[in-house]
Amino acid sequence: MNQVLHLYGYCCREGAVIKHIVDEVLTRLKKRQRNLPDHLVGIHDQLEDMKSLLQEGSPDVRFIVIHGMGGIGKTTLAEAVFNQISHQFSGHSFLPNVRESSQDDKIKELQWRLLSDILKFQPARIYDTNDGVNMIKERFRHKKVLIVLDNVDDRNQLMKLAGKHNWFGPGSRIIITTRDIQFLSINNGRPRDSDCIQHEEFYIYKMKEMPFHHALELFSEHAFRRDTPPTDYANIATKIVKTMGGLPLALKVIGSSLCYKNEAVSEDMKMPHREVHDILMMSYEMLEDEQKQIFLDIACHMAGEKIEDAVLMWKSCEFFPNLTIDVLINMSLIRVECHEELWMHDQLRDFGREIVCRESQFPGECSRLWCPKSAMEVIRRKRSFERPTFVQAS
């Protein structure tokens, strides 16, 4: 009897250990996935195009560039590809909004994060970007890796993170998203008749605006929480989608805003043609004062930060951040990543910062500063004005 009880206890303990291991593995796998909407409209054809460029199973190292205007869905496509194929690689990393990391200190942070993601442990601190480059080349040259560099706009950023094919092992794939491919020094490499093109080192995919039927479906998803507009709004919804073109960001933001303010739908949906900036301004103006302040904080400082840290800061300012965050999410102005980090589309971030810049032509008179050089210049000038003036006694 004692032996039976002992065996039963052992099995229970073993079962608990197995369950713990399974839960841990599932948690880690989930953390490595990008957080995407449940229903992605029109993504299937784009994924098929990307598969033809990725050539899964091919032993060569490939650099794939997704390019197109802001708000057209480059990051969403890169995230969808990352989620779909990352399990095929021995290491994978998604580095968002590389454009913000033009300074060496931030590039070092990205190098360290890249090494941490791929190696699955925290490497030694990086003191110099050249040291980071050497570490990446040394550690990755025999590894099959998947790396996404989102929103790149400078050749130096690419050279410090994924400079050459021989840095990586056979079968590796490096995906780059960018608004403009000029910094890649590609001559006559812009796709014309075809969306996909190979040019020397890079395989290039040009994003196009959504076709009308997909654009209408996406707008309806956010404005009416259904695939098609209600009969009473069909004509107006059709007109608004045609005037906005096939930009997913604009369709999501204006659709979500109209859904959020139901009483204003019928009037606002008759709006004339507007540029994307004006569409974003419409949504911004719908926010209450506190919501605007938190939106601008995220655009200038808090995107990429842990949500709990941001909430503590806003609560100290006597704001009610949890309610505001829900509003901003519902209006498609932000989202919360699986690591509980705040995320904002780069075009919305630029839009928010532009609002702050318009407060004054003098940075020191603006409500927020996000560029370290500008902040140090403002502090330096302030200190020079505050220096006491000594008058010699007569």
Rank of each mutant, 00 (worst) to 15 (best):
K137C: 07
R139W: 05
F140W: 02
F140S: 03
R141I: 08
K143H: 10
K143M: 09
K144M: 09
K144P: 01
V145R: 06
V145H: 03
V145F: 06
V145A: 05
L146D: 00
V148G: 00
V148S: 02
V148C: 01
L149E: 01
D150F: 02
V152H: 01
D153K: 07
D153H: 11
D153E: 14
D153V: 04
D154Y: 01
R155T: 03
R155D: 01
R155P: 05
N156Y: 05
Q157L: 04
Q157V: 08
Q157Y: 05
M159I: 11
M159G: 02
M159S: 08
M159D: 12
K160L: 00
L161W: 00
L161S: 03
L161Y: 01
A162C: 08
A162E: 04
A162N: 11
G163K: 00
K164P: 03
K164T: 14
K164W: 07
K164H: 12
H165I: 10
W167F: 08
W167D: 03
W167E: 05
F168S: 06
F168N: 08
F168E: 06
F168K: 10
G169A: 13
G171A: 13
G171I: 09
S172G: 11
R173N: 09
R173E: 05
R173P: 06
R173G: 02
I174C: 03
I174H: 00
I175T: 02
I176A: 03
I176H: 00
T177D: 00
T177M: 04
T177P: 04
D180M: 11
I181D: 09
I181M: 09
Q182H: 12
F183W: 14
F183A: 05
L184N: 07
L184M: 07
S185M: 04
S185I: 04
S185G: 00
S185N: 02
I186Q: 06
I186A: 09
I186S: 10
N187C: 00
N187L: 00
N187V: 01
N187A: 05
N188E: 07
R190V: 11
P191S: 14
P191K: 14
P191A: 14
D193V: 04
S194L: 12
D195F: 13
D195P: 13
D195T: 14
C196L: 15
C196S: 14
I197P: 01
Q198R: 10
H199W: 10
H199A: 08
E200Y: 06
E200H: 08
E200R: 07
E200T: 08
E201C: 11
E201R: 15
F202P: 05
Y203P: 15
I204T: 04
I204R: 01
I204D: 08
Y205C: 00
K206I: 06
K206E: 14
M207S: 13
M207V: 14
M207L: 15
M207N: 13
M207P: 09
M207I: 13
K208V: 13
K208D: 15
K208Q: 15
E209C: 12
M210P: 08
M210T: 12
M210A: 15
M210N: 08
H213C: 13
H213D: 15
A215T: 06
L216G: 07
L216I: 11
L218H: 07
L218D: 13
E221C: 10
E221D: 07
H222M: 02
A223R: 06
F224N: 05
R225C: 10
R225A: 12
R226H: 07
R226E: 09
D227A: 15
D227M: 12
D227F: 12
D227Y: 11
T228E: 11
T228Q: 12
P229R: 01
P229I: 03
P230E: 04
